[in-house]
Simulated scan of single mutants.
Amino acid sequence: MHGPASPAWLLVALCAATGAYCLLRMRSGVEEQRRAAGGEALMGFGMAAMAVPAAVFAPPRWVWPVYAAVFGAAALRALWAARRDAHHLHHLMGTSAMVYMSVVMAAAPAGHHHMPGGSGVAPVTGVLLLYFTGYVLLTGARLVPAAAAPGPGSGRWGDRTELARVCRLSMGIGTVAMLLTM
């Protein structure tokens, strides 16, 4: 999104590293973990691309509808998967947030990077901020005991649940940061 350059580059690095780790997680022996990791890799790299400071690279106007279409397709996939596993509802929220941010950026006048038509926080932005702030706090609290000491039979590093939680926590933090710039 479009805030100060230094935090934006930190967000790009965080999201790109998360996306890269999620690509590595796709090598898991567990099919459900591979599937989730693929969606999370898409989110990580998409967030990294959206977070590049506008002063460095201002994407052409046609990019935002493409982002909305890609993340819209990912949201439909998450909705379809949510009928089997409620965990996918979080993926649905994440991809929906990306669609929303893409649509807002497409609707923003050139050179203006905030919500069109007024001041303050838009209701959708506020709801998404509340959800992702709560998600970050809850996931962080759940992660603390898990990070204490993995057991001796914890499996391959790509299959460790605490690393997947860290991945999701990083993307949640990134989403909050991106929503704050809206």
Rank of each mutant, 00 (worst) to 15 (best):
G158I: 04
T175R: 02
C15D: 07
P145H: 11
Y67P: 09
V104T: 11
G46F: 02
L23A: 07
P150E: 01
W64E: 04
F132C: 06
A97M: 13
M101A: 03
A110D: 12
P53N: 00
P7E: 00
V176M: 10
P109D: 14
P150Q: 02
A110S: 13
Y131P: 05
G3F: 02
E162D: 10
L92W: 11
G158Y: 11
R156N: 01
V56Q: 04
R34K: 03
H113D: 07
A41G: 06
S119Q: 10
A86C: 14
W157G: 04
V166Q: 12
Y135F: 15
M101G: 11
W64M: 08
G72N: 11
I173P: 10
A58I: 05
A81W: 15
V144L: 13
S28F: 08
A106I: 05
A41D: 06
A8H: 05
Y131S: 04
A49N: 01
L24E: 06
V63P: 07
L11F: 03
T161K: 15
G151T: 12
A110N: 02
G29T: 04
A108C: 05
H2C: 04
V176Y: 07
V12A: 01
F71C: 07
R165N: 12
V127S: 09
C15S: 14
P53E: 01
A146P: 01
V103A: 04
A122S: 02
M171W: 07
G38R: 13
D85L: 09
R83N: 02
W62D: 02
T175H: 06
A51Q: 01
A54I: 06
D159Q: 10
M93S: 10
W80R: 15
H91N: 11
L92R: 12
T133K: 08
R165V: 08
S170V: 09
V12R: 01
G46A: 04
A17M: 02
G111P: 13
L10R: 11
S102R: 10
R165L: 14
H113V: 00
A36I: 08
G174Q: 09
G174W: 03
L163A: 05
M47C: 06
G44L: 00
V99M: 09
P109Q: 00
V166N: 08
V52R: 00
A110W: 07
V104W: 01
V144H: 07
L76T: 05
L169V: 06
E32T: 15
